[in-house]
């Protein structure tokens, strides 16, 4: 089963809807609540990163018998130093974004911690792609 959600940049009214839908879908499928919680955190952090840091993108959710895969891909501007971006506490979020409750620099580490497999690829000026899986 596959679902795809489009994430618009800087739209903080719709941001979170893709993750909300992801969560509802997994619940309907009767997936274990601990797995749903992890999937929801992964999807939400990825969705907010696209809305906050990118020019927009999409989130794909794939559910198979043995695993859930979440792919977040955006249209750039990419991440210059991935190792630095993965560090807890590192954030380039603006003052305005911090006032909305983001910019702790915990999103990517949260995703990695929740996922069974986590892979991030990005090129400066190019797109960022995060592929995460959860074993069922």
């Amino acid at each position: 089963m596959k679902f795809e959600y489009t994430i618009t940049t800087q739209n903080f009214t719709t941001a979170g809807e893709a993750s909300s839908n992801t969560k509802k879908t997994l619940k309907l499928l009767g997936i274990d609540s601990k797995i749903i919680r992890r999937a929801a955190i992964m999807a939400y952090e990825a969705e907010m990163n696209i809305a906050i840091h990118s020019r927009g993108g999409k989130i794909q959710l794939e559910i198979e018998a043995h695993r859930i895969t979440i792919v977040a891909e955006d249209q750039g501007p990419g991440i210059a130093d991935i190792d630095l971006a993965m560090k807890e506490g590192y954030s380039t979020a603006s003052h305005e974004i911090r006032e909305m409750g983001f910019g702790a620099g915990m999103g990517l580490p949260n995703m990695k911690r929740c996922a069974d497999s986590f892979d991030i690829s990005s090129t400066p000026g190019g797109k960022t792609r995060v592929v995460m899986t959860l074993n069922l």
Partner: peptide, 17 residues
């Protein structure tokens, strides 16, 4: 407990029930 009242606070709470 929070001093933020935007939509994302509710979304965050929703994610972790």
């Amino acid at each position: 407990l929070t001093g933020l009242t935007n939509q994302q606070v509710i979304r965050t709470a929703e994610m972790i029930d």
